Simulated assay, not measured.
Amino acid sequence: MKYSVVIVDDHTLLSQAIGAMVDTFDKFKVLYTCKNGRELTERFSESESQIPDVVLMDINMPIMNGIETTEWINKNHPKVNVMALSVEDTDATILKMLKAGAVGYLLKDTEKRVLEQALVEVVENGFFHTKNVTNLLLQSISGNSKRDIEFKENEITFMKLACTELTYKEIADRMCLSPKTIDGYRDVLFTKLNVKNRVGLVMYAIKNKIYTP
C-alpha cells in the first residue's frame, strides 16, 4: 500500500512536475493537485477518499494561502500531515507555517532524495526538519517552563521516545501499551503544552531538557 499525497501549488506546471517526481517514489502516490487552499478544502469536503496522508503545501497562493490552509487542515483534519514546499526562506515565514501546524518545511530547490526522505519521515515519525529549521525552532519556541507543568512518569517516557525516530506504534510496543493508550498520552500532552503536533512536543522536550539529542 502506498501513502497518498496531494500537492497544493498555484503554478500548474510546477505542481505537475512535483507530482510526477513523487509518483516515482516507492511508498507514495499523488492523489490529485490543487491550485489554492480553497480548492483543497472543497475536495476534502467531497468524501473521505479525497483526504490524503500528506499535503505538500505552497505558501504564496491566491484566494487561500498555505498558512491559512494549514491552519484549517490542522483544525479539521489533524491526522493529515502538512509539509511546506516553498521558495520562501525567511525565518518569519517558516515559523508562521510551522506554528500553523506544518510538520516539515522544505525549499523547492530540494534534491529529489531529500524530498523522498522527508515524506518517509513525515508518515513514519510525524515530522521532518532540516538542521536549520530545527535550530530556528529551538531559538524561537515559547511555552511554559517545565516547572510549571506536572507530568506523569509515563508522559515523560512517552515524550522522550517521541523525540526519537520511533513511530507511535513502535513507542506503544516499547512501553508495552496499546496504540490507543499512546494516542491518549499524545493528545493529553498536546493540550498541556499547547502544541499542535509532534514537532511542538519534541521542541518543548529539547528546550526544557526532558530530552537531550
Rank of each mutant, 00 (worst) to 15 (best):
Y3N: 15
Y3A: 08
V5W: 00
V6G: 05
H11V: 13
H11W: 05
T12I: 01
L14S: 12
S15T: 06
I18V: 13
A20P: 11
V22M: 11
F25G: 11
D26V: 02
K27P: 06
F28E: 10
F28R: 03
K29M: 05
Y32A: 08
Y32W: 02
Y32P: 07
C34H: 09
N36Q: 04
N36D: 15
G37I: 00
G37P: 12
E39Q: 10
E42S: 02
D53C: 00
L56M: 11
I63A: 11
E68T: 07
T69W: 04
T69C: 14
I73N: 06
P78Q: 08
M83Q: 04
L85C: 08
S86V: 05
E88P: 04
T90Q: 15
D91Y: 07
A92K: 15
I94C: 10
I94H: 03
L98C: 14
K99Y: 15
G101P: 12
G101Q: 05
V103S: 06
V103H: 05
V103K: 01
Y105K: 01
K108S: 12
D109I: 02
T110P: 05
R113P: 09
E116N: 14
E116S: 00
Q117S: 11
A118Y: 03
V120Y: 03
E121R: 03
N125E: 14
F128A: 01
H129C: 08
H129D: 10
K131H: 12
N132V: 04
S140M: 07
S140G: 06
G143A: 09
N144C: 09
N144Y: 07
K146A: 15
N154A: 10
M159R: 02
C163S: 08
Y168L: 13
K169P: 08
I171E: 07
A172V: 02
A172H: 00
T181P: 09
D183S: 12
Y185C: 09
V188P: 06
L189F: 07
L189C: 09
F190P: 04
L193K: 06
V195T: 08
K196C: 09
R198S: 14
M203G: 12
K207Q: 14
N208A: 06
K209G: 13
I210Y: 12
I210E: 04
